[in-house]
Simulated scan of single mutants.
Amino acid sequence: MNTLMSSSENRHEQGAGRWHSPFWTMVGKEVADHLRSWRFIVLLVLIALTFWGTTAVAMGHLREVVTKAKDTGQLFLYLKLLTTTEGTLPPFHVFLNFLGPLLGIGLGFDAINSEQQNGTLARVMAQPVYRDNLLLSKFTSSLILVGVLLLSLALLMIGGGMVMTGILIEAEEVMRILGFTVLCTVYVGFWLALSILLSVVFRQPSTSALTAMGIWLFFTVFYRIVIELAVSAFAPDTRELAPSEAIRFNGIILSLLRLAPSQLFTDATTTLLMPSVRSLGPVTMEQMAGAVPSPLSLKDSLMVVWPQVSGLVAATVLCFALTYYLFMRREVRS
Rank of each mutant, 00 (worst) to 15 (best):
V186A: 08
V186Y: 02
Y187F: 15
V188R: 09
F190T: 00
W191M: 10
L192Y: 02
L192N: 08
L192H: 05
A193I: 00
L194F: 03
L194H: 02
V200M: 01
F202Q: 01
F202N: 01
F202G: 09
Q204T: 06
Q204V: 00
P205Y: 01
P205L: 11
P205I: 13
T207I: 13
S208W: 03
S208A: 08
A209Y: 04
L210H: 03
A212E: 00
M213F: 01
G214T: 00
V221L: 00
F222G: 00
F222Y: 11
Y223A: 02
R224P: 00
I227E: 06
E228Y: 06
E228H: 08
E228K: 05
L229A: 14
A230D: 00
S232Y: 09
S232N: 12
P236G: 14
P236S: 12
D237G: 02
D237N: 05
R239S: 15
R239K: 04
L241I: 10
A242Y: 08
A242Q: 11
S244A: 15
N250R: 11
N250Y: 09
G251H: 14
G251T: 15
I253K: 10
L256K: 11
R258T: 11
L259A: 10
L259F: 11
S262P: 02
Q263R: 14
F265Y: 13
D267E: 07
A268P: 09
T269I: 05
T270I: 12
T270D: 07
T270Y: 06
T270K: 12
L273M: 03
L273Y: 08
M274C: 07
P275E: 06
P275V: 05
P275L: 07
V277P: 07
R278C: 06
S279T: 08
S279N: 14
L280H: 03
L280K: 04
G281K: 13
P282Y: 07
Q287A: 12
Q287N: 01
Q287E: 15
M288L: 15
M288K: 14
M288W: 07
A291P: 04
V292N: 04
P295Y: 08
P295T: 11
P295H: 08
L296S: 10
L296A: 13
L296C: 06
L296N: 03
S297F: 05
L298C: 05
K299C: 03
M303L: 11
V304M: 08
V305Q: 05
W306T: 06
W306Y: 07
P307M: 10
P307D: 05
Q308E: 12
V309P: 02
S310R: 13
